[in-house]
Amino acid sequence: MTKTEALNSNSVQKLVSLFRFSRSSRGGMHKKDGINAVFFLTPTVIIFLTFILFPVVFSFYLSFHEWNMFSNEATFVGFDNYTKMFQSEEFWSVLKNTGIFTFGTVPLNMALSLVVAIALNKKIKGKKFLRTAFFAPVIISPVAAAVIWRWIYDPNYGLLNYGISFLGVGSVNWLNDPTAAMFALIIMSVWKTFGINMVLFSAGLQGIPETYYEAAKIDGAGKWAQFWKITLPLLAPTTFFIMIMSMISSFQVFDLVYVLTSGGPLGSTKVLVFFVYEYAFKFFEMGYASAAAYVLFVILIVLTMIQVRYMKNRIQGSF
Protein backbone atom coordinates (compact mmCIF):
# COMPACT_ATOMS: atom_id res chain seq x y z
CA MET A 1 0.00 0.00 0.00
CA THR A 2 1.46 3.36 -0.97
CA LYS A 3 1.40 6.42 1.17
CA THR A 4 -1.22 8.09 -0.97
CA GLU A 5 -3.55 5.17 -0.65
CA ALA A 6 -3.23 5.29 3.09
CA LEU A 7 -4.17 8.93 3.08
CA ASN A 8 -7.16 8.29 0.92
CA SER A 9 -8.46 5.76 3.34
CA ASN A 10 -8.46 8.40 5.98
CA SER A 11 -11.96 9.14 7.15
CA VAL A 12 -11.41 12.86 7.12
CA GLN A 13 -10.63 12.51 3.46
CA LYS A 14 -13.95 10.81 2.97
CA LEU A 15 -15.62 13.64 4.78
CA VAL A 16 -13.98 16.17 2.54
CA SER A 17 -14.84 14.28 -0.60
CA LEU A 18 -18.49 14.47 0.34
CA PHE A 19 -18.37 18.15 -0.41
CA ARG A 20 -16.79 17.70 -3.80
CA PHE A 21 -19.05 17.64 -6.77
CA SER A 22 -18.70 14.37 -8.57
CA ARG A 23 -20.41 12.91 -11.54
CA SER A 24 -23.02 10.32 -10.94
CA SER A 25 -21.31 7.00 -10.86
CA ARG A 26 -24.16 5.48 -12.79
CA GLY A 27 -23.28 7.53 -15.81
CA GLY A 28 -25.88 9.78 -17.43
CA MET A 29 -28.70 11.29 -15.42
CA HIS A 30 -32.32 10.48 -16.07
CA LYS A 31 -34.91 13.19 -16.34
CA LYS A 32 -36.73 11.90 -13.29
CA ASP A 33 -33.53 12.17 -11.29
CA GLY A 34 -33.37 15.84 -12.15
CA ILE A 35 -36.89 16.52 -10.87
CA ASN A 36 -36.16 14.58 -7.73
CA ALA A 37 -32.95 16.48 -7.21
CA VAL A 38 -34.73 19.81 -7.51
CA PHE A 39 -37.42 18.61 -5.12
CA PHE A 40 -34.95 17.53 -2.49
CA LEU A 41 -32.58 20.45 -2.90
CA THR A 42 -35.14 23.26 -2.84
CA PRO A 43 -35.60 23.47 0.95
CA THR A 44 -31.86 23.50 1.54
CA VAL A 45 -31.25 26.06 -1.14
CA ILE A 46 -33.98 28.31 0.23
CA ILE A 47 -32.58 28.04 3.74
CA PHE A 48 -29.08 28.64 2.45
CA LEU A 49 -30.13 31.72 0.52
CA THR A 50 -32.20 33.27 3.33
CA PHE A 51 -30.12 32.48 6.36
CA ILE A 52 -26.58 32.30 5.01
CA LEU A 53 -26.04 34.01 1.71
CA PHE A 54 -28.37 36.95 2.29
CA PRO A 55 -26.96 37.88 5.74
CA VAL A 56 -23.41 37.60 4.41
CA VAL A 57 -24.10 39.96 1.54
CA PHE A 58 -26.34 42.26 3.57
CA SER A 59 -23.87 42.69 6.40
CA PHE A 60 -21.17 43.53 3.86
CA TYR A 61 -23.51 46.21 2.51
CA LEU A 62 -24.26 47.39 6.05
CA SER A 63 -20.62 47.73 6.97
CA PHE A 64 -20.53 50.78 4.70
CA HIS A 65 -23.72 52.21 6.15
CA GLU A 66 -25.18 53.49 9.32
CA TRP A 67 -28.36 51.74 10.39
CA ASN A 68 -30.10 51.32 13.75
CA MET A 69 -32.49 48.51 12.69
CA PHE A 70 -35.57 50.57 13.51
CA SER A 71 -35.51 52.94 10.59
CA ASN A 72 -36.24 51.91 7.04
CA GLU A 73 -33.21 53.44 5.45
CA ALA A 74 -29.51 53.12 6.03
CA THR A 75 -27.20 56.07 5.44
CA PHE A 76 -24.13 55.49 3.33
CA VAL A 77 -20.97 56.44 5.22
CA GLY A 78 -18.22 54.91 3.09
CA PHE A 79 -15.30 53.58 5.06
CA ASP A 80 -16.22 55.56 8.20
CA ASN A 81 -17.11 52.46 10.21
CA TYR A 82 -13.76 50.88 9.41
CA THR A 83 -11.67 53.97 10.12
CA LYS A 84 -13.54 54.63 13.37
CA MET A 85 -12.92 51.05 14.41
CA PHE A 86 -9.21 51.04 13.59
CA GLN A 87 -8.81 54.24 15.58
CA SER A 88 -10.59 52.95 18.67
CA GLU A 89 -8.49 51.53 21.47
CA GLU A 90 -11.31 49.19 22.41
CA PHE A 91 -11.17 47.38 19.08
CA TRP A 92 -7.45 46.63 19.35
CA SER A 93 -7.76 45.40 22.91
CA VAL A 94 -10.64 43.16 21.87
CA LEU A 95 -8.56 41.84 18.99
CA LYS A 96 -5.68 41.19 21.36
CA ASN A 97 -7.96 39.28 23.74
CA THR A 98 -9.26 37.18 20.86
CA GLY A 99 -5.70 36.43 19.82
CA ILE A 100 -4.66 35.41 23.33
CA PHE A 101 -7.72 33.21 23.62
CA THR A 102 -7.12 31.52 20.27
CA PHE A 103 -3.41 30.90 20.74
CA GLY A 104 -4.06 29.69 24.25
CA THR A 105 -6.91 27.38 23.34
CA VAL A 106 -5.95 25.82 20.02
CA PRO A 107 -2.55 24.24 20.90
CA LEU A 108 -3.78 23.09 24.30
CA ASN A 109 -6.93 21.70 22.80
CA MET A 110 -5.11 19.84 20.04
CA ALA A 111 -2.41 18.42 22.29
CA LEU A 112 -4.94 17.19 24.81
CA SER A 113 -7.28 15.67 22.26
CA LEU A 114 -4.40 13.91 20.49
CA VAL A 115 -3.08 12.43 23.72
CA VAL A 116 -6.51 11.23 24.76
CA ALA A 117 -7.26 9.86 21.29
CA ILE A 118 -4.02 7.87 21.24
CA ALA A 119 -4.62 6.58 24.75
CA LEU A 120 -8.12 5.46 23.83
CA ASN A 121 -6.92 3.87 20.61
CA LYS A 122 -5.20 1.17 22.66
CA LYS A 123 -7.09 -1.90 23.76
CA ILE A 124 -8.05 -0.84 27.24
CA LYS A 125 -11.01 -1.57 29.44
CA GLY A 126 -13.84 0.93 29.62
CA LYS A 127 -12.73 2.52 26.37
CA LYS A 128 -16.25 3.26 25.20
CA PHE A 129 -17.25 4.72 28.52
CA LEU A 130 -14.19 6.97 28.64
CA ARG A 131 -14.74 8.13 25.09
CA THR A 132 -18.34 9.05 25.94
CA ALA A 133 -17.23 10.79 29.11
CA PHE A 134 -14.65 12.89 27.28
CA PHE A 135 -17.17 13.74 24.59
CA ALA A 136 -19.93 14.68 27.05
CA PRO A 137 -18.85 18.32 27.59
CA VAL A 138 -19.33 18.98 23.88
CA ILE A 139 -23.05 18.28 24.10
CA ILE A 140 -23.64 20.01 27.44
CA SER A 141 -25.33 23.37 26.98
CA PRO A 142 -22.75 26.14 27.41
CA VAL A 143 -24.94 27.94 29.94
CA ALA A 144 -25.22 24.89 32.19
CA ALA A 145 -21.51 24.26 31.82
CA ALA A 146 -20.68 27.83 32.75
CA VAL A 147 -22.80 27.61 35.89
CA ILE A 148 -20.81 24.56 36.98
CA TRP A 149 -17.52 26.25 36.17
CA ARG A 150 -18.50 29.39 38.05
CA TRP A 151 -18.72 27.17 41.11
CA ILE A 152 -15.44 25.49 40.36
CA TYR A 153 -13.77 28.89 40.01
CA ASP A 154 -15.40 30.42 43.09
CA PRO A 155 -12.67 32.08 45.18
CA ASN A 156 -14.22 31.08 48.53
CA TYR A 157 -15.87 27.73 48.04
CA GLY A 158 -14.54 26.65 44.64
CA LEU A 159 -13.19 23.21 43.90
CA LEU A 160 -10.21 24.54 41.98
CA ASN A 161 -8.97 26.74 44.81
CA TYR A 162 -9.50 23.86 47.20
CA GLY A 163 -7.40 21.69 44.92
CA ILE A 164 -4.53 24.11 44.54
CA SER A 165 -4.55 24.89 48.27
CA PHE A 166 -2.71 21.56 48.71
CA LEU A 167 0.03 22.83 46.45
CA GLY A 168 0.61 25.69 48.83
CA VAL A 169 -0.61 28.26 46.32
CA GLY A 170 -2.78 31.02 47.77
CA SER A 171 -6.38 31.35 46.66
CA VAL A 172 -6.83 32.76 43.18
CA ASN A 173 -9.78 34.98 42.35
CA TRP A 174 -10.31 33.21 39.04
CA LEU A 175 -13.11 35.24 37.53
CA ASN A 176 -12.40 38.63 39.04
CA ASP A 177 -8.75 39.00 38.18
CA PRO A 178 -7.95 40.13 34.63
CA THR A 179 -5.09 37.66 34.05
CA ALA A 180 -6.69 34.72 35.78
CA ALA A 181 -10.04 35.24 34.05
CA MET A 182 -8.59 34.70 30.56
CA PHE A 183 -6.83 31.62 31.86
CA ALA A 184 -10.06 30.36 33.40
CA LEU A 185 -11.87 30.93 30.13
CA ILE A 186 -9.23 29.02 28.16
CA ILE A 187 -9.36 26.05 30.53
CA MET A 188 -13.12 25.87 30.36
CA SER A 189 -13.15 26.23 26.61
CA VAL A 190 -10.61 23.42 26.18
CA TRP A 191 -12.65 21.19 28.47
CA LYS A 192 -15.79 22.04 26.53
CA THR A 193 -14.46 21.46 23.00
CA PHE A 194 -11.61 18.95 23.04
CA GLY A 195 -14.03 16.01 22.86
CA ILE A 196 -14.98 16.65 19.27
CA ASN A 197 -11.32 16.85 18.24
CA MET A 198 -10.65 13.66 20.14
CA VAL A 199 -13.26 11.89 18.01
CA LEU A 200 -11.73 13.28 14.83
CA PHE A 201 -8.24 12.20 15.89
CA SER A 202 -9.57 8.74 16.78
CA ALA A 203 -11.02 8.43 13.32
CA GLY A 204 -7.69 9.50 11.88
CA LEU A 205 -5.79 7.00 13.98
CA GLN A 206 -8.01 4.15 12.90
CA GLY A 207 -7.27 5.05 9.31
CA ILE A 208 -3.55 4.29 9.75
CA PRO A 209 -2.95 0.70 8.68
CA GLU A 210 -1.48 -1.60 11.30
CA THR A 211 1.04 -2.90 8.75
CA TYR A 212 3.15 0.26 9.06
CA TYR A 213 3.64 -0.28 12.74
CA GLU A 214 4.47 -3.94 12.18
CA ALA A 215 7.06 -3.01 9.60
CA ALA A 216 8.51 -0.39 11.89
CA LYS A 217 8.74 -2.83 14.75
CA ILE A 218 10.66 -5.26 12.59
CA ASP A 219 13.02 -2.43 11.72
CA GLY A 220 13.49 -1.88 15.43
CA ALA A 221 11.63 1.41 15.89
CA GLY A 222 10.60 2.27 19.45
CA LYS A 223 7.29 3.78 20.55
CA TRP A 224 8.55 7.35 20.14
CA ALA A 225 10.01 6.72 16.75
CA GLN A 226 6.74 5.14 15.67
CA PHE A 227 4.82 8.16 16.90
CA TRP A 228 7.05 10.72 15.21
CA LYS A 229 7.68 8.81 12.00
CA ILE A 230 4.34 7.13 11.40
CA THR A 231 1.48 8.41 13.51
CA LEU A 232 2.11 12.12 13.28
CA PRO A 233 2.86 12.34 9.54
CA LEU A 234 -0.08 10.14 8.62
CA LEU A 235 -2.35 12.13 10.90
CA ALA A 236 -1.29 15.36 9.22
CA PRO A 237 -4.48 15.86 7.17
CA THR A 238 -6.59 15.34 10.30
CA THR A 239 -4.36 17.63 12.33
CA PHE A 240 -4.56 20.26 9.65
CA PHE A 241 -8.32 20.02 9.46
CA ILE A 242 -8.67 20.23 13.25
CA MET A 243 -6.30 23.15 13.45
CA ILE A 244 -8.24 25.22 10.94
CA MET A 245 -11.60 24.37 12.45
CA SER A 246 -10.47 25.05 16.04
CA MET A 247 -8.91 28.31 15.05
CA ILE A 248 -12.08 29.44 13.33
CA SER A 249 -14.28 28.46 16.24
CA SER A 250 -11.91 30.07 18.76
CA PHE A 251 -12.01 33.31 16.88
CA GLN A 252 -15.78 33.10 16.92
CA VAL A 253 -16.15 32.29 20.61
CA PHE A 254 -19.08 34.06 22.22
CA ASP A 255 -21.46 31.99 24.35
CA LEU A 256 -18.86 30.76 26.82
CA VAL A 257 -17.59 34.29 27.35
CA TYR A 258 -21.07 35.69 27.69
CA VAL A 259 -22.10 33.27 30.41
CA LEU A 260 -18.81 32.81 32.26
CA THR A 261 -17.28 36.28 32.50
CA SER A 262 -19.51 38.66 30.48
CA GLY A 263 -16.32 40.08 29.00
CA GLY A 264 -15.06 41.13 32.42
CA PRO A 265 -13.27 41.82 34.60
CA LEU A 266 -12.12 45.14 33.14
CA GLY A 267 -12.83 43.93 29.64
CA SER A 268 -10.03 41.37 29.85
CA THR A 269 -12.10 38.59 28.30
CA LYS A 270 -14.01 40.70 25.84
CA VAL A 271 -13.54 39.02 22.48
CA LEU A 272 -14.34 40.13 18.97
CA VAL A 273 -17.78 38.54 18.63
CA PHE A 274 -18.76 39.94 22.01
CA PHE A 275 -17.80 43.36 20.67
CA VAL A 276 -19.95 42.75 17.59
CA TYR A 277 -22.87 41.69 19.78
CA GLU A 278 -22.57 44.72 22.01
CA TYR A 279 -22.57 47.21 19.16
CA ALA A 280 -25.28 45.44 17.21
CA PHE A 281 -27.80 44.60 19.90
CA LYS A 282 -27.07 47.06 22.67
CA PHE A 283 -26.09 50.22 20.84
CA PHE A 284 -27.92 49.33 17.60
CA GLU A 285 -24.98 50.37 15.46
CA MET A 286 -25.47 47.67 12.87
CA GLY A 287 -23.03 49.23 10.40
CA TYR A 288 -20.21 49.38 12.90
CA ALA A 289 -20.93 45.87 14.12
CA SER A 290 -21.02 44.53 10.55
CA ALA A 291 -17.68 46.16 9.86
CA ALA A 292 -16.21 44.38 12.87
CA ALA A 293 -17.75 41.13 11.70
CA TYR A 294 -16.13 41.59 8.31
CA VAL A 295 -12.75 42.22 9.90
CA LEU A 296 -13.17 38.90 11.67
CA PHE A 297 -14.08 37.30 8.35
CA VAL A 298 -10.96 38.69 6.67
CA ILE A 299 -8.74 37.58 9.55
CA LEU A 300 -10.12 34.05 9.32
CA ILE A 301 -9.70 33.90 5.54
CA VAL A 302 -6.11 35.13 5.75
CA LEU A 303 -5.20 32.75 8.57
CA THR A 304 -6.75 29.81 6.76
CA MET A 305 -5.00 30.70 3.52
CA ILE A 306 -1.63 30.91 5.25
CA GLN A 307 -2.20 27.50 6.77
CA VAL A 308 -3.32 25.98 3.50
CA ARG A 309 -0.25 27.40 1.74
CA TYR A 310 2.07 26.13 4.40
CA MET A 311 0.55 22.69 4.68
CA LYS A 312 0.01 22.09 0.99
CA ASN A 313 3.64 21.24 0.38
CA ARG A 314 3.78 18.98 3.39
CA ILE A 315 0.73 16.86 2.85
CA GLN A 316 0.68 15.20 -0.48
CA GLY A 317 -2.48 14.28 -2.21
CA SER A 318 -4.83 16.20 -0.03
CA PHE A 319 -6.71 19.45 -0.44
Binding site: N156, S171, Y258, T261, S262, G263, G264, P265, L266, G267
Partner: peptide, 20 residues
Protein backbone atom coordinates in the same frame (compact mmCIF):
# COMPACT_ATOMS: atom_id res chain seq x y z
CA UNK B 1 -9.30 32.04 57.47
CA UNK B 2 -9.17 35.30 55.50
CA UNK B 3 -12.68 34.86 54.12
CA UNK B 4 -15.64 36.86 55.36
CA UNK B 5 -18.51 34.78 56.68
CA UNK B 6 -20.68 37.85 56.82
CA UNK B 7 -20.56 40.85 54.51
CA UNK B 8 -21.95 44.21 55.61
CA UNK B 9 -23.17 45.67 52.35
CA UNK B 10 -23.42 44.54 48.76
CA UNK B 11 -22.51 46.92 45.95
CA UNK B 12 -23.69 45.91 42.48
CA UNK B 13 -20.33 45.92 40.70
CA UNK B 14 -20.59 43.86 37.51
CA UNK B 15 -18.54 43.55 34.30
CA UNK B 16 -19.04 46.75 32.32
CA UNK B 17 -19.47 44.84 29.08
CA UNK B 18 -21.91 42.37 30.55
CA UNK B 19 -25.69 42.22 30.70
CA UNK B 20 -25.84 43.67 34.23
Amino acid sequence: DGKNEQTGLFLPVYPAAGPL
